[in-house]
Every structure is written in C-alpha cells, then in structure tokens.
C-alpha cells in the first residue's frame, strides 16, 4: 500500500459518498444518470466476488463492502425512493453498447480463463466506460450541478492516482497488470475533458459546467 493507492481509494470513496449524500440531502437525483450507477453496482458486484474466496486484509474487505453497499444504496435511491425525480428522459445512453462488447472482450482478453477471473476482467473493462451514460447525460442537458461535478472530479482523481500507484508499484514492487493499466488509462482519458472544464469553469465562479 502506497500513498497514491490509499488517496486514490479515499478519493473514490469521497466520490461515492458525495453522490449518495447529495441525493439524500436534496431528496432528488435530478441530473444523475441511473444507468451509470447501475453499471457501477455491476462493476463492484462482479469484481468483489473474491470476498467469498480470498481474504486480503481487513482494509480490503471493509472497503469492498462499503463500495458495494453504497453502490446499491445509490441505485435504490434513484430507482425506488426518489424515482419521481429521476430524469430518465435524458438518461438515454444505450448501455448494451457498452456491456456486450465489454463482456466479449473479457472473454477474449483475460489473465486466466476461469469464471471469477473473467468476471474480474469484465468489471475492469466495464468500470473504464461506466461513466459514459453520465457524461452523455450532461452533454445532452448542457449542464451539471456543482455537486455532480465534484462527484466526477473525485472519480477522475481516483483514476489518476491509481495510474501513479501503478507506476510506483512497477518501480518498487515489479508489479504490472496490463489489463488494469490499459483500462485505467482509457478511463482516465475519458475524464480529461471534464477535468479541463472543471478547473477552468470552476475558477470563473460559475456553478454550472457546460461541456458542449
């Protein structure tokens, strides 16, 4: 565990909590893509099946349970509790265009052709593109609330920190996971445009981000 990995995990946790609290406090999930949140719940579920097969550390287990729990809580708030505020008309990204190719790729390119490993690979690939419905929704409506942009910022920061973590681990531990790294780079690139807007628009005092 290095500082980049730890702050990356905490940044990821911050993003998840920020979104959950925003929906809870405002009693509304307007502007939030339920589809992205379902994909993230699917990502955590398929990746953390190893909770049942191997124990790594108390930290690892605890964080996995928190991530999964928060992901399902978010999906519950969007599709059940605050369903009336869900902006489904603007959440029109076709997720099958992500899930099907990603599923196929996980079968073809993996470390080991076993059920758990294929599901892990699927989750890695899917995570890299799971935010697309959310970004698509923002580009469609032309704006995002400040809190939503903070959520995206921490998600992007988590990815960037993980990249540094992998460079660190390569030099100091000889650790190298090609699948995680390639998917991580793709995922980070998807956030770059958003990062630029976040920084430039954020400083202008405007509380809206227009990605167009």
């Amino acid at each position: 565990m290095n500082i980049f990995r730890l702050t990356g995990d905490l940044s990821h946790l911050a993003a998840i909590i920020i979104l959950l609290l925003k929906i809870w406090k405002t009693r509304s999930c307007a502007g939030i893509s339920g589809k992205s949140q379902v994909l993230f719940a699917l990502v955590f579920t398929t990746r953390y099946l190893d909770l049942l097969t191997s124990f790594i550390s108390l930290y690892n287990t605890t964080m996995k349970i928190i991530y999964i729990g928060c992901a399902y809580a978010t999906v519950y708030l969007i599709y059940m509790k605050f369903k009336a505020t869900y902006d489904g008309n603007h959440d029109t990204f076709r997720v099958e265009f992500l899930v099907v190719p990603v599923g196929g790729l996980a079968f073809l390119v993996n470390h080991d052709f076993s059920p758990l490993e294929i599901l892990w690979t699927f989750s890695i690939y899917l995570e890299s593109v799971a935010i697309l419905p959310q970004l698509f929704m923002i580009s469609k409506t032309g704006e995002a609330e400040t809190i939503t942009t903070h959520y995206l910022f921490f998600l992007g920061l988590y990815r960037a920190l993980y990249l540094i973590n992998w460079i660190w681990r390569f030099y100091f531990e000889g650790f190298f996971d090609m699948i995680a790294i390639v998917a991580g780079v793709v995922q980070t690139i998807l956030y770059c445009d958003f990062f630029y807007l976040y920084v430039t628009k954020g400083e202008s005092g405007s509380n809206k981000i227009n990605p167009a």
């Binding site: 990995r5 995990d9 990821h12 990746r47 190893d50 191997s54 790594i56 690892n60 964080m63 996995k64 991530y67 470390h111 080991d112 076993s114 758990l116 490993e117 892990w120 993980y162 973590n165 996971d177 995680a180």
Partner: peptide
C-alpha cells in the same frame, strides 16, 4: 484454479 491471480487492489 492453481496460480490464479489475487487482485489486491480495489
């Protein structure tokens, strides 16, 4: 399976 990778990251 034997030699299966353990993924220690989140």
């Amino acid at each position: 399976a034997e030699g299966e990778a353990v993924h220690d990251e989140l």
